[in-house]
Design a protein around this nucleic acid. Structure first.
Lengths: 95, 95
DNA sequence: ATAATAGTTCAAAATATTTTGAACTATTTA
DNA sequence: TAAATAGTTCAAAATATTTTGAACTATTAT
């Protein structure tokens, strides 16, 4: 059961997720990929430990900025711009 | 001499500024005002100390989310949506 | 000149976020 | 079955952010 968030709470989640250089690097890497890629690949590409990666991917996922699918051992992630558009697009209206 | 920021650094500054409930309250209050208002008025309205207010107003100002003008003893602040539009509007393009 | 008022600055304390490494689960390969 | 691989979880350590109160500047009012 995932708690239902208000517009503001959701916005804060997204802004927090975006307010970090490592996570922007992740998103930047994902943007260059048309296909979805494994967490390991991304982590290696930007040079972070897998523990740290796990932490950041979870945050991005919770914020709705990436989608993730588990295939056997690996987790494949991809950019999801739609949440951003929805929440940040109407940010000033909802404020 | 204010350091020149990259697009990403500016974006992080804005996202950090927006990733906080107190600062969203400030922006929310400012949104309701057509005129600019004193820091004291805002602080009182949302119930924060003036020291804390000073801290948050500085952050918002640095991020370019508010404008400020000093008139005699008081500092009048107002919403500035334009920076947000410029930086966040092209966020995915610049990423 | 003295008081009061609006806001800033500073350093310390309180909180929150991020990184790290070890131990863990689950899956695949030898 | 045993070893290797991908990722998660946990708690501790390292950092970063936020709050607090006292001391400060500058302006206005008595």
């Amino acid at each position: 059961m995932t708690k239902q968030l208000s517009k503001n709470e959701q916005a804060i989640l997204i802004f927090k997720a975006l307010a970090d250089p490592v996570r922007l690097e992740i998103l930047h890497y994902l943007k260059q990929c048309d296909h979805d890629v494994s967490c390991g690949e991304v982590g290696q590409a930007i040079g972070i430990s897998k523990t740290s990666g796990s932490y950041h991917f979870k945050l991005l996922q919770t914020a709705g900025l990436i989608t993730a699918r588990k295939e056997s051992r690996e987790k494949y992630v991809a950019l999801d711009q739609s949440t951003f558009e929805q929440v940040v697009g109407h940010f000033w209206d909802n404020l």
